[in-house]
Design a protein around this nucleic acid. Structure first.
Lengths: 176, 176
DNA sequence: GAAATAAAGGAACGATCGTTCTTGACTGAT
DNA sequence: ATCAGTCAAGAACGATCGTTCCTTTATTTC
């Protein structure tokens, strides 16, 4: 408990909005392809406030990544709990916005172990959600997650997912 | 036809070796994460020769990408022609070294349309090879390629591929 | 050997990188 | 009204980026 003697000038930016915008920017191009100038220009926050609030560019990136996991992956996990078969699970994953997670997995994980940890545990939680919902072994769930990520990677998720699940779905339908 | 009056000092580096090494470097981290200093240090070529021979960093990247397609993807296509079922095709793709292609697809294609063209046609050729070998519709082949890429993305390709093909293989066996 | 050509070797370029410093504007409590 | 504390605004930092220039060395043809 410390006594507040003065409050100071109030912020002119919304921290939540800034982090959400950072998720969009970092989800659109590689980490090194997003400069601090880009962040300052597109996020409505000024250099000083960015460093005061988030510590560094990497600090903002990590916060944005965790926000992405909380806002976009966590709801996916909840939805997956009600999945009835592999087709349904694949549809849920391939229709989610996982661009930042995908980019983080492929280009930051190899060089940033803190990112690697977040990515690994996020993907593992997707695996577990699928395994629990469908009652399939974990390695099958991992394979399903992998297939969904590959579909996201190629773009046109809807068309491709349809083809895959048309063949894969019946095999893992719950209770057969 | 021009008359050669003098030959000049011979190269002290092997152009093929340099390009192969560049494939390794660019396949290991993001484009912006590989500096020209890195290239000069690890490739055994000096700045001047790099620019004289390849034009620019991006020029070397494009040449390395095409070399990757010729050395690593083309043999995969040939091998896929003999694939008997989806399991075999998936095994072939997931055991290939496609790191540069994967990285190019996810982090360069969005910002470099020449890269995007190479990546798209390479992935399309994999689709066609699978479709031709297995006699499946092209969208199913696209889905299989996507699944294989997702498996590569997650690491541990062998274990995961086994699980996926155990369920997927029988469905698309040739002639059933 | 002399002239011509091409590569090696390295210094140096302007631009941009992430980060920090300085100054002034604004706020709440005394 | 004053003071303390926070933020905005933007200049400025050293480091590194991709690229170019210059000099030296090596080789072939005359």
């Amino acid at each position: 408990m410390r006594t507040v003697l003065a409050m100071g000038r109030p912020r002119a930016f919304d921290e939540d909005e800034v982090v959400r915008a950072a998720v969009g920017l970092f989800g659109g191009r590689a980490y090194d392809g997003v400069s601090v100038d880009d962040l300052v220009t597109h996020l409505g926050v000024h250099r000083n406030s960015l460093y005061k609030t988030f510590g560094s560019k990497r600090g903002l990136y990590l916060i944005a990544l965790r926000r992405h996991l909380a806002d976009d992956v966590r709801p996916l996990l909840d939805a997956l709990a009600d999945a009835k078969d592999a087709e349904g699970a694949l549809r849920l994953v391939t229709s989610a916005d996982l661009r930042l997670l995908l980019l983080a997995a492929i280009e930051r994980s190899p060089v940033d172990e803190e990112v690697a940890f977040e990515v690994t545990s996020a993907l593992d939680s997707v695996d577990r959600a699928i395994a629990d919902a469908l009652g399939v072994p974990t390695d099958v769930a991992t394979a399903l997650t992998a297939a969904a990520l590959g579909i996201l990677l190629r773009g046109n998720p809807d068309k491709v997912a349809t083809a895959l699940t048309r063949h894969l779905g019946p095999l893992t339908r719950k209770g057969t």
